[in-house]
């Protein structure tokens, strides 16, 4: 069955990015979050992103209208009964994800595939909260979703071949490239990136180089689009801490132990781009100002 209407749960950075990609590919999206303020902020932010794309000639006004017309911003999970496929992109908290999937398991049609965007939690464990573990899969997109092509496709213990094939095909249909990954905390990208970001923070604390220069080193030396500290700012230091902590807990290896400065900055509320301050400062449009 063709996938024409997709549910996205969670209107955060990943959920909104995914929503934009889907709508740009002509797919109708039901974007659900639990708070009116969050969903409205997501809508405004998407309009802002599309306007910026128009300024860069990447879109026309009429294309913007078409994209926005494809998206239903809502608090009502019941609307997911019409979805042909559902993505979940809420916080990396096992119980929250399990309860959401358990709830929508009763709303969505039984043949609909559920995909979680988790990067550290067990697909098998989340799937067990539903009556459809064979139609449950992990699709881990890469931030920023609009620009990065990579999707890690993770099979849980009971994910069927059919579900895997449909998901893989769908990933290609929305212009992304999938790689197959077996279930292990952090998969490939998070497992490689988090220790890198974490080590960059240790370099700052040790005074080996300035934050500015650490980022320049990786940008100019290895063609990174952002340096590791700006990347961490853009992901949100709170999310980086949660994920790194998750890896540390799962593997018990000190190489994943979060840098002290990371914890400190999260406690101080300097969690990066979304609040305007992390290792660097940002304006309302998310551009670096120093």
């Amino acid at each position: 069955m063709p996938i024409r209407k997709v549910g996205v749960i969670g209107a955060g950075v990943m959920g909104l990015g995914l929503t934009q990609v889907l709508a740009e590919h002509g797919i109708e999206v039901i974007l659900v979050d639990k708070e009116e303020a969050i969903i409205e902020r997501a809508r405004q932010h998407l309009i802002h992103l599309l306007d910026k794309e128009i300024e860069k000639w990447g879109l026309t006004e009429s294309e913007k209208k078409v994209i926005l017309s494809k998206i239903r911003f809502t608090l009502d999970k019941q609307l997911l009964r019409d979805a042909d496929f559902v993505f979940e992109t809420v916080d990396e908290i096992l119980e929250v994800k399990k309860s959401i999937f358990n709830e929508i398991d009763h709303i969505c049609r039984p043949n609909v595939i559920f995909a979680t965007n988790t990067s550290t939690l067990s697909i098998t464990e989340i799937a067990a909260a539903t009556n459809r573990p064979e139609r449950f899969i992990g699709l881990n997109f890469t931030h920023p979703v609009v620009k990065r092509q990579l999707v890690q496709i993770i099979r849980g213990l009971k994910t069927s071949d059919d579900t895997y094939e449909i998901a893989k095909h769908f990933v290609v249909e929305i212009g992304k490239k999938g790689i197959q990954v077996y279930e292990a905390p952090g998969y490939v990208t998070v497992r490689l990136m988090m220790p890198l970001l974490n080590e960059a923070m240790n370099l700052v604390v040790e005074g080996v180089a300035s934050a500015e220069d650490i980022d320049l080193a990786m940008k100019d030396g290895f063609d990174f689009p952002y340096g590791p500290l700006e990347m961490a700012d853009r992901m949100g230091l709170d999310a980086v801490l949660r994920v790194t902590d998750g890896l540390y807990r799962e593997y018990g290896d000190v190489k994943y132990r979060p840098a002290l400065i990371l914890r400190k900055m999260v406690r101080a509320g300097h969690i990066g781009e979304k609040v305007g301050e992390g290792f660097f400062k940002y304006n309302d449009a998310g551009e670096r100002i120093e």
């Binding site: 794309e53 860069k56 000639w57 990447g58 879109l59 026309t60 620009k147």
Partner: peptide
């Protein structure tokens, strides 16, 4: 100069 991607510059020449 404008920090454009391939998609953006293609869209600029075709649609703008």
């Amino acid at each position: 100069k404008e920090n454009l991607t391939l998609n953006e510059v293609t869209s600029m020449l075709n649609k703008h």
